[in-house]
Design a protein around this nucleic acid. Structure first.
Length: 300
DNA sequence: TACATTTGACCACA
DNA sequence: TGTGGTCAAATGTA
């Protein structure tokens, strides 16, 4: 586990320093520019940088998705097979939600009305995946669906994948609106890593999103277009010289999250995509000897 | 009675 | 051909 990582650690430190710099810039922009566009753009860069950091750290620490505390599951290494089954042309947004308790697991409600239409045992996953669609699918032709699956390692952690945006009356709901905005943002050409390798195909927007995800899988780490969590406030981001040590993440679903880190040189927290959250959790919380310690937890 | 959930079967994709 | 996603009949519940 230890030793021989000088080069990678240096690269990791460099990447994380860049993250730090971006967060500081983000804070400055949030103070000056009321429009979220600039901040959003920076968030994408931030996610990209974090992604690279994770890749470096993983190669450094000897990544073994199925080893350790976690069992083979639909994320991590086995995610490639699972994710590749997604239907083409259907954009998706991923989230991970943690219930405060097992009893509250059923209350992972995003405020929208869903109807369960199926459940499936997923290869390598301990828990089945539940399939939901909008209650108003037939009455209003709303095609929004979501899949919910419990994480093997943490029964409180639920991986939620939203497909499509609500077009029904409840689309006016804040959660639905946010989801819609995220989908639209992700579907913008050039968003994320700019991978447009499948341009010769029927280049609809959903397909381009799929291309982004495929590229991430190829890199050995699921890199989905960032789910734009937002900082609770510029001040709360605490990205100045005195790191507060945690960032509140405002989930569009209404659940508040914080990603905390601790390090002798200071602490920081970042808003990262859902898959990144898992990566962080697995990577940093399972390597107690590493100088960084990360904790992702629900703030409410 | 209306609506939601369960579950086996079928379909699409890689 | 195996697996994930969806359908639809059966069943449960308020």
């Amino acid at each position: 586990m230890d030793g021989g990582y000088g080069g990678e650690k240096s690269a990791l430190a460099s990447e994380l320093a860049q993250v730090l710099s971006m967060v500081r810039e983000l804070e400055a922009r949030m103070d000056q520019d009321p429009l979220p566009a600039a901040a959003r753009e920076l968030c994408a860069e931030l996610a990209s940088s974090v992604d690279r950091s994770i890749c470096i750290a993983r190669s450094c620490c000897g990544d073994s998705p199925a080893s350790g505390a976690g069992s083979p599951r639909s994320d991590g290494g086995n995610a490639t097979a699972a994710q590749s089954k997604r239907r083409k042309g259907t954009p998706c947004v991923r989230r991970q939600l943690r219930a405060a308790s097992v009893q509250d697991a059923a209350a992972l409600d995003d405020g929208l009305s869903w109807r369960k239409y199926g459940q499936k045992d997923i290869l390598g996953a301990k828990y089945p995946r539940a399939y939901f669609r909008c209650t108003h699918r037939h009455s209003q032709g709303c095609t929004a669906t979501k899949h919910v699956q419990r994480a093997d390692g943490d029964p409180l952690l639920h991986d939620v994948v939203y497909h499509g945006a609500h077009t029904c009356a409840q689309a006016a709901h804040p959660s639905a609106q946010q989801l819609r905005q995220e989908l639209e943002l992700q579907l913008q050409p050039g968003h994320g890593h700019g991978a447009q390798e499948d341009q010769d195909q029927d280049q609809d927007q959903g397909a381009s999103l799929l291309a982004l995800e495929t590229e991430g899988l190829r890199a050995g780490l699921l890199v989905e277009p960032m789910t734009p969590y937002s900082f609770a406030s510029a001040a709360a981001a605490g990205a100045g010289a005195d790191f507060a040590g945690c960032f509140p993440l405002l989930s569009p679903t209404g659940l508040d999250w914080q990603l905390r880190s601790s390090h002798p040189a200071g602490s920081l927290g970042v808003g990262i995509g859902m898959e990144f959250e898992t990566q962080f959790e697995e990577l940093f919380t399972t390597n107690a000897t590493e100088p960084f310690q990360w904790d992702l937890y629900a703030a409410n």
